[in-house]
């Protein structure tokens, strides 16, 4: 799958989501669970990001790629 196809697929999924029936406030009990936050384990994420930043050629995506250490 080339780059353009991947982007198109992701955009379609995102846009199709916007077209669905809005979830009402009283239906959001499950979503309110902290486990459902996109970043539900920030410490774990930051440790993982640092490992992969120092071992691989790509960083960022979820958040800022940044710099911050001399490990890469």
């Amino acid at each position: 799958m080339n780059r353009k196809n991947i982007l198109t697929l992701v955009m379609l999924v995102t846009l199709s989501a916007c077209a669905s029936t809005p979830v009402q406030p009283w239906e959001k009990g499950v979503l309110a669970n902290p486990d459902m936050a996109p970043e539900s384990s920030p410490l774990t994420s930051s440790l993982d990001d640092h490992i992969y930043f120092s071992k691989e050629g790509t960083s960022g995506g979820r958040g800022f790629a940044g710099g911050g250490c001399g490990c890469n």
Binding site: W26, P38, E39, P42, G63, G66
Partner: peptide, 20 residues
């Protein structure tokens, strides 16, 4: 729960900040 969702969504965007 509704209020908590608002916080959860803030977390959704906060994850963009890179400041865990």
């Amino acid at each position: 729960n509704f209020k908590n969702l608002s916080v959860a969504l803030a977390g959704a965007t906060a994850c963009l900040s890179g400041v865990a």
